[in-house]
């Protein structure tokens, strides 16, 4: 799951080295914290959060085999 998010983010940003994902797992959920270079923020969020929303939708669909929900935070 984490790898998928890293892959998608790398495809979208200019500064691929600055992409990192931190996975936080609690009893009830998995949260993936995505961080990218300051100047690339717009490329993963998009106008009105359109790109962020698409990323969340794809991750949510991809997480069907997990036993708890997966959230994506952009930090």
């Amino acid at each position: 799951m984490k790898e998928l998010l890293v892959y998608i983010a790398r495809q979208l940003v200019d500064n691929t080295d600055a992409v990192s994902v931190n996975q936080i797992e609690t009893e009830k959920a998995i949260t993936l914290q995505l961080s990218v270079a300051e100047e690339d923020m717009g490329k993963v969020i998009g106008k009105d959060g359109r790109i962020a929303k698409a990323i969340r939708t794809v991750i949510k669909a991809a997480s069907r085999n997990e036993d708890k929900p997966v959230y994506v935070d952009i930090v």
């Binding site: 998608i8 495809q11 359109r50 929303k53 698409a54 990323i55 939708t57 794809v58 949510k60």
Partner: peptide
Amino acid sequence: GDTLQALNYLSNLI
């Protein structure tokens, strides 16, 4: 078709 739409959108961007 939400997920398909999101996949399509990201593919376009990439």
